[in-house]
Design a protein around this nucleic acid. Structure first.
Lengths: 189, 189
DNA sequence: ACACTCATGTAAGCTGTTACATGATTAA
DNA sequence: TTAATCATGTAACAGCTTACATGAGTGT
C-alpha cells in the first residue's frame, strides 16, 4: 500500500525516464525514502508495463548501454490519480503520508488539502490517546515507557501544530512562495 | 532488525506469559506498535523456543483452554541485553527506536543515554540535510515537494529539541518522576 | 591494473500482513 | 442462539532487502 509502485508512476508522470534515471531521481529524495534497490525497482517497472500503466521504448545508446525509457499512459495517469485520491490508513508510516503529499501536491490542491485534513484528524486522535496514556502513568510506570510515551507525545504535538498552521494558511489562499519555510521555523525557534 | 522478536523477549523478561497474554500486553501498547497478528506472534514464540531463548510450560486450564506459558532463559537474557546494546541503524523507523528505548529504559540507564545520544546525532544529520534541501528550494520546486520538505523539517526540529532537553536533564541527574511530562509540554505550548 | 559510472536484471530471504481454521466457555 | 472472550495455530501473499550476475566505457 505504501507502494513505491505509485511513487514510480508519479515520477514517470513528470517525464519519461529509464530505470536508472528513476534510481537517480530517488537518490535525490533520500531524505524522504531510502532509494529502492534495483531488486525492487526493475520488477515494479515490469509490472507497470504488464498492466499497461506505462509504455517502454528501447533507446539505443551510442557509446553506452541501451536504455529502456518508460513513459506513462493514459490508463497509468488514471490509476495514479485514483491512488492519490484514496485515503491513507492511519497505520501507515509517516513516509507513506509524505509520499502521498508529494504526489498530491503536483496534481490537485484540493486533494492535497483533503489529505492534510485527514492527517490532522488521525494525528489528533493518536495525540489524544497518547495524552490519556501519559496522564494514566504514575510512579509505577517503567522509565522506558515514560520516556517513549513522552517522546511520542512531543512529536505528535509538533505534528499537530504544523498541520494546523499549514491548514490555516491554505484556507486563506493558495500555496505561495515563502509560505512554507516560515511555518516550520516560526513554530520551533 | 526492528524485531518484534526481541520486543517479545523483552516482555517475557518482565514476567512469564502465554502468547495470548503477550497479545494483550501489546494491545496496551498500541500507541507504539500495531499489535502483531497471531500469524506473526506464534511463529516468533516457536523460534525463540527453538533457539533456547525461552522455555515453555503447558499450564492446563480448568474451565478454559490450556495455556503455553513462556519464560525467558539465561541465554535469552543475554541475547536481549546484547540486542539492546547494539546501535540502531539510522534508516530504522521511529518506532524501532521507541521500542529500543522502552526496553533499554527497563534495563540499563547508561545504555538508554547512549541510545538517546546516538539518536541525537542521527537526527542532527538528517536535520542538516533537510535544511540544505529546503534552502536549495526555489520557485521551481514543486509545491508537493516544498510541503513534504517543510513537514519533515518541522518534525526533525521538534525531535531534536526534545532530545536536547531530555539529554540535558539526564546529565544533571537520573530519571525522576515528573521530569518527563514537562519536557514535551514545555517545548510545545 | 583498478575502480567507478552507466545500465539491466535474478534469486533468495526477511519481516511482516490478512484471512482462514479450530474449539471450548461464558454472557446477553 | 448468538456473540464475545480465551487460546492456539496455518497458508498465502505483500513489499520490500541483500547479494549476486553481466557487460561496456571511462577515468587515474
Amino acid at each position: 500500500m505504501v507502494s513505491l509502485r505509485y511513487f514510480v508512476l508519479g515520477l514517470l508522470a513528470q517525464k519519461p525516464m529509464s530505470g536508472y534515471d528513476i534510481r537517480r531521481s530517488l537518490k535525490g529524495l533520500s531524505w524522504l525514502i531510502s532509494s529502492p534497490s534495483p531488486g525492487s525497482l526493475y520488477p515494479i517497472l515490469r509490472e507497470l508495463l504488464r498492466d499497461g500503466l506505462v509504455l517502454m521504448e528501447v533507446v539505443p545508446g551510442l557509446d553506452r548501454p541501451d536504455r529502456k525509457v518508460y513513459s506513462i499512459t493514459e490508463a497509468g495517469d488514471r490509476a495514479l490519480r485514483s491512488w492519490i485520491g484514496k485515503p491513507i490508513p492511519p497505520s501507515a508510516p509517516l513516509k507513506a503520508f509524505l509520499m502521498h503529499l508529494l504526489l498530491a501536491g503536483n496534481v490537485s490542491s484540493s486533494k492535497l488539502i483533503g489529505h492534510l485534513r485527514q492527517r490532522r484528524e488521525q494525528v489528533g486522535t493518536s495525540h489524544a490517546t497518547l495524552q490519556e496514556a501519559a496522564e494514566a502513568a504514575d510512579e509505577d510506570t517503567s522509565p522506558g515507557r515514560q520516556l517513549a510515551l513522552d517522546y511520542a507525545l512531543a512529536l505528535a504535538t509538533a505534528e499537530l501544530s504544523w498541520l494546523d498552521t499549514i491548514l490555516e494558511r491554505l484556507s486563506e489562499g493558495p500555496l505561495r512562495e515563502g509560505m512554507l519555510q516560515e511555518a516550520s521555523i516560526a513554530s520551533t525557534t
